[in-house]
Design a protein around this nucleic acid. Structure first.
Lengths: 278, 278
DNA sequence: ATGTCTTTGTGAACGCGTGCACAAAGATTG
DNA sequence: CAATCTTTGTGCACGCGTTCACAAAGACAT
């Protein structure tokens, strides 16, 4: 999970669970693809597969929105696209500002996924005076001094922070003071904001760290399996990698290397059922 | 949640809950900051505040790792940094490849948060022959043809996909066939991968959509409050923007609006069935 | 109309995650 | 050594989210 909510209690606004809200964009994306292919209806099973979720979960999610399906048939694609869009608030225009136009900020400014939904980049803002006026994604970068004016004039309520960690808190305070009530934070810092302001965060390195954890675990399990169930990770401590620290690390590394070479996967094609650990 | 896991059952590897694993990087970040300020120990209360979580949750999380604290004192910063790093597998070197060197790929290549943890960008790969050889983040971009060779020679087990959506599935298959077992996917697509391969996804527009939902809700609540408790949003949904009362009328109106507004792209008109729930 | 077949919508059970609250453990002081 | 104080580690309860499994609803055929 690259992200998480901050502050704000449970958000069960009018009954739609947070977990469901987080999946709606997923469904919307799958539905949009179907719509472009002029598919008129989908069953929960098909749509669930396209969105990468369980069909029962999808049906329950939709049940929170209302009864938009037809039993024995499925869901009308166009209709559902509209309903979800409306529920998510994408039928209206959301001006956003991006603060911090470094590599990431520039990438975000160029990202097509924003405009295709209801989002419009109202301004790019950077603290570096040298950046001011420079065009990024066909739009001149403006200086931080203009921040308040831009937000108020454009009625911006969503801000994206792509500054270095050190500047993020201060930027968030200025955004909030100027009227922003939702922040998407890419800076690796915990933002402290008043109640009523939503913050979602995306931390690229956190995602990688989580992958590393699972990767290490996979390597460890493989090593254990290869070693022929030596000590069996005992019930007590969770220290599979702990006990013999040195050897554990060594085996893990060795296994990783082995896996990387040719040991695993002999199949040419993708769907080979993998190694199959215990 | 910018991200979510795909495939792989519950991951309760040797007892560490997934939710805890997802927070370990957060703690690590806070601890690293303390370490840089040469703070010797922290209490769960202080650290929790720095990481933006509840202190009880933090203590419970740490309890899965073992008893690393001292009652009456707190946790030794350096020791905890090491323990968490080890648990996450950051004490070893993780070579990663980034596929798709567009704006986002370039931003990722330049992102400092990778190297500062145990991650090393082994190669930048792009399908565009014109990109080949061009330096990005002080490293020459290599052509997709080299993908397999690069992965095998460097023992890469983690791949980052920053390609357009259309190319992602195919890239993932090549990565996996070459030995990659963990993928961080920035492309807005659901990847289908065999068991044993971990996929985490980050979708920037999804995050914004979730914020928009809450933003809309906030606006709706404000409006409702201002309007002096009109007629309680009916069963249908939290339809803040102009909504008739009866759900039947609402759906009919909604459908008409869908056709009228530009939500849907192409597609003939007559296909909108007057669903009509009872 | 009646029956069959498909697919939705949901009640109910279950499991995970969270937070409370407190006993246990150690530091510290007298 | 005893008393007190601080902070950890965790048992317990609760609520959310997920999944199963099935009745209800509608399409479709006869």
């Amino acid at each position: 999970m690259a992200t998480g909510r901050t502050h704000r209690p449970a958000t069960r606004s009018r009954g739609i669970p947070e977990a469901t809200v987080a999946r709606l964009p997923l469904y919307l994306r799958a539905l949009t693809a179907l719509s472009e292919r002029s598919v008129p209806t989908v069953s929960s099973e098909e749509l669930a597969a396209a969105a990468g979720v369980n069909s029962a979960k999808l049906r329950k999610d939709f049940s929170y929105l209302g009864s938009y399906g037809t039993r024995g048939v499925g869901y009308d694609v166009e209709y559902l696209v509209y309903q979800i869009s409306r529920e998510l608030g994408l039928t209206q225009d959301w001006p956003v500002v991006i603060v911090g136009i470094g590599n990431l900020g520039a990438a975000l400014a160029n990202y097509g996924g924003f405009a295709s939904r209801g989002f419009r980049v109202a301004a790019l803002i950077d603290a570096d005076p040298a950046m001011a006026g420079k065009p990024v994604a066909g739009m001149p970068v403006q200086h931080t001094d203009e921040l308040e004016k831009i937000i108020e004039e454009n009625g911006v309520s969503i801000g994206v922070i792509a500054t270095p960690a050190g500047a993020a808190q201060q930027v968030s305070e200025r955004l909030i003071a100027a009227g922003v009530t939702s922040i998407l934070n890419f800076a690796p810092t915990v933002l402290s904001v008043p109640d009523g302001v939503d913050v979602r965060k995306v931390d690229l390195s956190i995602e990688l760290q989580i992958l590393a954890f699972h990767e290490q675990r996979k390597a460890g399990e493989e090593a254990a399996a290869a070693a022929g169930s030596a000590g069996e990770p005992g019930t007590g401590a969770a220290e599979s990698p702990a006990a013999p620290a040195a050897s554990a690390t060594a085996t893990a590394t060795a296994t990783a290397a082995a896996a990387a070479s040719g040991v695993r996967k002999g199949g040419p094609e993708g769907d080979v059922p993998a190694v199959m650990p215990a």
